[in-house]
Amino acid sequence: MTILTELAGLPGVMAVGEYSYRGDRFSHKGQLDDEQARMASIMCRATTMSVHMQSEILGSFSTDCGFNPARGWIVTGPRFAVCVVANVFCFLDKTAASLNDVLGIMRTQLDGAPSELV
């Protein structure tokens, strides 16, 4: 089972997707149409790039910085949240999803994902 299939089957997961770090390729499952998934990929790619740069800056100030390199990020709104680890994104309904379950699967499955392409 791919990570997208596994995540898409969790309660409260509205949509999941995977995008390439360079270029416009992406795949997705759930309640987003192709154009929305493309936009989500653009947004997630941009934020991932920023977070990686910022983590490097944090890391440059100390040799023992557990934030660097960044593995992902989460943003939360009143009802929905977006979780990203490596190049996989997941849109959640906070009222139905378990953040810990989603993050747990993403972190485990994407543990060895390379970050040099970010």
């Binding site: 929305q36 936009m39 947004m43 934020t47 977070v51 910022q54 983590s55 910085c65 557990g66 934030f67 660097n68 390199p69 960044a70 593995r71 992902g72 990020w73 989460i74 943003v75 939360t76 709104g77 009143p78 009802r79 929905f80 977006v82 680890v85 309904d93 993050l103 972190r107």
Partner: peptide, 27 residues
């Protein structure tokens, strides 16, 4: 992003963003 997304997709529930989490390498 939430503002732009909600306007273009005519949805609600992301704006205003109330939290950001960084998942670092260890922390």
């Amino acid at each position: 992003q939430a503002r732009g997304w909600e306007r273009i997709t005519a949805t609600e529930g992301f704006y205003p963003i109330d939290g950001f989490t960084i998942v670092g390498f260890e922390w």
